[in-house]
Design a protein around this nucleic acid. Structure first.
Length: 337
DNA sequence: AACCGCGCCAACCGCGTCACG
DNA sequence: TCGTGACGCGGTTGGCGCGGT
């Protein structure tokens, strides 16, 4: 059975030959694809339009980046997936030159296993229960040597990587409401979004402005305070923190205070014309601030002996905060205030 | 050398959405 | 408003290559 779109035609299926690729490239280069359903006929191919489209998008497009994914790309996929779930096309938009199919395949063949091997649920990015982890342990045993710590919620010393029984207190992301652009009245009310809610598939972003057309221009700055509170009531990061994890249920608490900084404006554009620039600006600024925070935390981290604050968690939380302004790609998020 | 199992990835399938008549 | 075709997306399949036995 062929595609509905080309069920009347006799179409070839399966892998594309170099000759077919050549025909398709020549046709699209010369004429553009126009209507995909007419491409096979015009290009002299015995394929359906859908197949041509797929071949072009996933393989022949000149702007495709070939080769394996970089560590940065991998991290982006994980971060965005944590927010969006299996919305591969949306995720791929954050990776220039990568296709949704490529991202999907990479996730299924690589990242998924990596997360499982680290005791994380690839669907929710939450820690798996001990039973789930036990069952995964067998499945992931062979790949355990490729474990990396960079994606775990905690970065622990090796002997305590299994510390999830430590109790976690959800970090709170505090987002002060940005100043409205119209009246410039500053309201100091802050939003608090428990991280666990951000992770939830049902998470409804709570933030400033619920109208997608609203022209608010703002971004977030960042300062980080992290506190480690053990059950032995010490509030000072102890050198033997990982031992505490072994011997005492430990509460981990981090507050990422996100403060406003001066709202950037894009010269010469009316608010309605700005959303794309706005989004890019926000992302750039968030990334800058994350870098700054990273440096600060790394300095703090150096004095923590074997314990470290997970920046991936922080980054993803903040990126999600920034992305929540991306109302086109985050169409499942409603802004209720 | 032959066979087998497994992982990767290109391609397919089916469904939802949108535009248009 | 409804029907139809085109497109886009996510899930799934199947072929190929590779390593192990």
């Amino acid at each position: 059975m062929g595609h509905r779109c080309c069920s009347k035609q006799k179409v070839k299926r399966g892998l594309w030959s170099p000759e077919e690729d050549d025909k398709l490239i020549k046709h699209i280069t010369a004429h553009g694809h126009g209507s995909w359903s007419s491409v096979p006929k015009l290009a002299g191919l015995q394929r359906c339009g859908k197949s041509c489209r797929l071949r072009w998008i996933n393989y022949l497009r000149p702007d495709l980046k070939r080769g394996s994914f970089t560590a940065d790309e991998e991290q982006i996929i994980i971060d965005v997936h944590r927010i969006l779930g299996n919305r591969w096309a949306q995720i791929a938009k954050h990776l220039p030159g990568r296709t949704d199919n490529e991202v999907k395949n990479f996730w299924n063949s690589c990242i998924k296993k990596k997360l499982l091997s680290q005791g994380l649920d690839p669907k929710t990015h939450n820690l798996l229960s001990s039973r789930q982890r036990a069952s995964n342990k067998l499945a992931c045993h062979s790949s355990s040597q490729t474990q990396e710590q960079s994606f775990t919620v905690f970065n622990m010393s090796s002997q305590n990587r299994d510390a999830p029984r430590a109790m976690m207190k959800a970090p709170v992301l505090t987002l002060p409401e940005p100043p409205p652009p119209s009246d410039q009245i500053h309201r100091s009310m802050a939003m608090q979004i428990p991280y666990s809610e951000c992770q939830s598939p049902n998470f409804v972003g709570t933030g400033y402005g619920q109208n997608p057309n609203e022209s608010a221009i703002f971004s977030y700055g960042l300062s980080v305070e992290s506190t480690i509170i053990s059950s032995s009531s010490s509030s000072i990061p102890l050198p033997g923190f990982n031992n505490l994890l072994d011997e005492n249920p430990c509460i981990w608490e981090a507050n990422a205070f996100v403060e406003t900084f001066e709202a950037p404006t894009v010269e010469g554009l009316q608010p309605q014309e700005q959303p794309q620039q706005e989004k890019e600006k926000i992302c750039e600024m968030v990334i800058d601030k994350i870098d700054e925070a990273r440096e600060e935390v790394l300095e703090m981290d150096a004095s923590f002996d074997s314990c470290s604050f997970d920046l991936g968690l922080l980054e993803s939380t903040l990126i999600s905060a920034a992305m929540c302004r991306d109302l086109s790609s985050m169409d499942d998020f409603a802004w209720n205030f």
